[in-house]
């Protein structure tokens, strides 16, 4: 079984061998093509890169992100992860998702489980860790996100910022190679945004590969290796932060930056 998969990897080899994630001609329609959200573009993300995606609502940012771990099934196009074509019907997406964490705008913690159980559920069920290992790692992660005393609390007892930090810890508990952040601070009260961003900056410093959809320009400027501006279903501009903010080329981006800065 495993051998077969490795064979597949060779067969479906992507063009760019150092890319961790590679997207080719990605198209996503809704309602049988009535609404075109992603209009076909290529992009590749290298290991350790911090990619921040910004853009107006409806531009396809979240859909792009959600296509990366197939929470949205692309209408056409290919996505490769570690050289494996995950859009193939033969690909076991669950195996891929173990290595590709995701943090949601609305946290999506499991409300019927304690914080620690939220962290240990998947690693234990997927037999990545024994129960003891998972608990030890979970406590370590809670320590890291600054919530060591909340292990036995239920999500409803936490503030929004605390919930999002737990959600990040939950993604980290899988020891992923990349974490996808889908507007992680958009649902937070302003005074809680900072604690989540600080944590994300710390993860960035530690070298985690991150793809972040956000409206936090300060964060983008400080953390991103590259910033993507998504508009009308394509990547309208891609640049390092300095250039992105000081010398935007795309007129839509110029307009956008004028409004948000």
């Amino acid at each position: 079984m495993k051998n077969k998969k490795e064979q597949k990897v060779v067969l479906d080899a992507p063009c760019n061998p150092d890319a961790l994630i590679e997207v080719k001609n990605l198209v996503k329609d809704f309602n049988d093509g009535e609404i075109k959200v992603l209009r076909g573009f290529d992009y590749s993300i290298k290991k350790g890169e911090k990619i921040v995606i910004i853009g107006p609502s409806g531009g396809g940012k979240s859909t792009f992100l959600r296509c990366l771990n197939l929470l949205e099934k692309p209408t056409s196009g290919e996505i490769y992860f570690n050289g494996e074509r995950i859009t193939s019907t033969k690909c076991n997406i669950n195996q891929v998702r173990k290595k590709m964490g995701m943090v949601f705008q609305h946290f999506n913690l499991f409300p019927h489980k304690t914080v620690l159980e939220n962290l240990t559920l998947a690693p234990v069920m997927l037999k990545l860790k024994t129960k003891e290992e998972a608990v030890a790692r979970g406590k370590e992660l809670l320590n890291m996100v600054g919530l060591p005393d909340k292990a036995e609390a239920y999500p409803s007892q936490l503030s929004g910022g605390q919930k999002q930090r737990v959600a990040i810890a939950r993604a980290l508990a899988m020891d992923p190679e990349v974490i996808l952040f889908d507007e992680p601070t958009s649902a937070l009260d302003p005074e809680m945004v900072g604690e989540v961003l600080d944590l994300m900056k710390e993860l960035a410093r530690e070298g985690l590969t991150m793809v972040v959809v956000t409206h936090e320009m300060g964060f983008a400027r400080e953390v991103a290796d590259k910033i993507l501006f998504m508009c009308d279903g394509v990547i309208a501009e891609e640049a390092p932060p300095e250039e992105f903010f000081t010398n935007p080329k795309n007129p839509r981006l110029q307009q956008f930056l004028q409004k948000v800065l």
Binding site: N94, K98, A171, M174
Partner: peptide, 11 residues
């Protein structure tokens, strides 16, 4: 979102 969270963890 609950299903997405579960699925995104590889379940």
């Amino acid at each position: 979102g609950q299903i997405e969270a579960g699925r995104s963890l590889g379940l």
